[in-house]
Each structure stands twice: as C-alpha cells, then as structure tokens.
C-alpha cells in the first residue's frame, strides 16, 4: 500500500533517529571548532613572530589544508593513520581530528590577518610605554584584532557545519547516513519518502547555518560603519 511520502518522517522513531543523527553532526562540528579555534589562535600569533623557519612551516601547514579538498583530507587520515601509524580511531573521532586541524589552519590565517592589520602606531605606542611582547599582544593587539576576527570566525563555523555533510563518506552515523537508511527501509511503502527525508535534512542545515551567517553579516556591517564613521 502506498502512503503519502511525508508520513515517512513521523513513522516509528524515524524523526527521533534523524534528530539523533543531527546531534552527532552538531557535536562533531562543535568539538572540532573549539579545539581548532584554540590551536588556530596560537598558530596565528606564532605566524606574526619574526622566526623565519617557524613561519615557513606554519605557512606550509596552512597551504596543505587549503589546497587538499576536505573529502580527500578525510580519506587521507582514514586510510593512512591505521595503516602507517597503527592508530585506529572510530570514524567520529577521526572526523573531529581532521576538522579541528583544518579549522586551526584557516583560523591561523584569520588571526594573523587581523593582528597585522592593527595599525603600526598602536604596536609602536605599546612598545614605547614599555610593554613586553606578552603584554603587547594581551592588551593592545588581540583586543583590537578580535572585532576583525569574529565575523570571519562565524563564517568559518558555517563552513565547518556544511562540511560535516561529508561524515557519511567515512561511515559516521550522521544525519545523512540515517536519512539514507530510513529511505532504503521505507522505499516500498513510501516511494516519495526520499524527497521528504532529504528535504528535511536540507532544512536542518539551513536552519543551523542561516542564523549564523546572518549574524556574521550584521557584525561585519556594524564594524564597517564604525570604521567609516
């Protein structure tokens, strides 16, 4: 017997299962973001130092994560860690690690960009009143850099959330993987179920990402208004 497609979402525990998958997705994105942001801030500050070898290494780290597509990064870690380093991680932790390293790379560039765009005279005034390097960063550069960083960081968060859609490729039970299971299990009774399940997942992603990118846009606009008077 054919049912209308949309009812597939609410049969049995289907809806709860999809929400459970969404939770896995959100958790991985959140942990990766927190770890990646902290590591990225440290790397970003290091990249403003004058130590040349350090800067070259960090730049190469950034470029590697920028040039290799995230799908490929996931598979690199998925195949190479267990085989070459005998390091076995479950899929969700592996994905968290890859995303955190990727966030750290992107974040280091955001932080560096914000720090070097603080006007030179600020740095010099700080030195003139006798601040040491730690104090200069802590009281002069970082507070001023933050207003530049925040919109870019929120945008990075929306990218990470969108990228979690790749989790299914390394068999993590995320919202898309669960959606596929529900579609396959109900294909006979609900032939149009695929439309509603993917439609709902589409909506989930939009509902998480849209408020974030709206917020980033608003902050950016405010900052520009302040900068241009």
């Amino acid at each position: 017997m054919d049912h209308s497609g949309i009812s597939v979402l609410f049969e049995g525990t289907n809806f709860e299962r999809l929400l459970g998958g969404l939770w896995v997705t959100v958790k991985i994105a959140a942990v990766a973001l927190i770890v990646g942001l902290i590591l990225g801030i440290v790397l970003g500050v290091l990249r403003t130092f004058k130590n040349r070898p350090l800067r070259v290494i960090l730049r190469l780290y950034l470029e590697f994560f920028r040039i290799v597509p995230t799908v490929v990064l996931l598979f690199l870690f998925y195949y190479i860690l267990p085989r070459e380093m005998n390091f076995n991680l479950p899929g969700d932790q592996l994905a968290t690690l890859v995303f955190a390293l990727w966030v750290a790379a992107e974040m280091s560039d955001i932080v560096r960009g914000a720090l070097i765009s603080v006007p030179q005279h600020q740095r010099e005034s700080g030195k003139a009143i006798g601040l040491n390097r730690y104090q200069l960063y802590r009281y002069v550069l970082i507070p001023q850099a933050i207003s530049l960083e925040i919109p870019a960081t929120i945008n990075l968060a929306t990218r990470v959330i969108k990228t979690t859609s790749l989790l299914m490729l390394i068999s993590v039970m995320d919202v898309i993987n669960i959606g596929q299971q529900i579609i396959e299990a109900n294909n006979h009774t609900h032939p149009t179920g695929v439309f509603w399940v993917y439609g709902l997942i589409f909506l989930f992603y939009f509902l998480i990402d849209y408020p974030l990118s709206w917020w980033a846009k608003r902050l950016e606009k405010k900052r520009l208004e302040r900068a241009n008077g």
């Binding site: 898309i176 032939p191 695929v194 439609g199």
Partner: peptide
C-alpha cells in the same frame, strides 16, 4: 543566495540526483 550558501553541496546533489526523479 541564502539557500544556496547555507546548505551543503552534498545535500544539494542528493536532492537533484535522488529526490528530483521522484517528482
């Protein structure tokens, strides 16, 4: 612009490839 920027390409592709044939 908002719909396209705030959803992942993977889901956009699944929608086109698997869901559109249903309609």
């Amino acid at each position: 612009v908002e719909v396209s920027r705030n959803t992942p390409l993977l889901i956009q592709l699944f929608f086109l490839y698997y869901a559109f044939p249903v309609i």
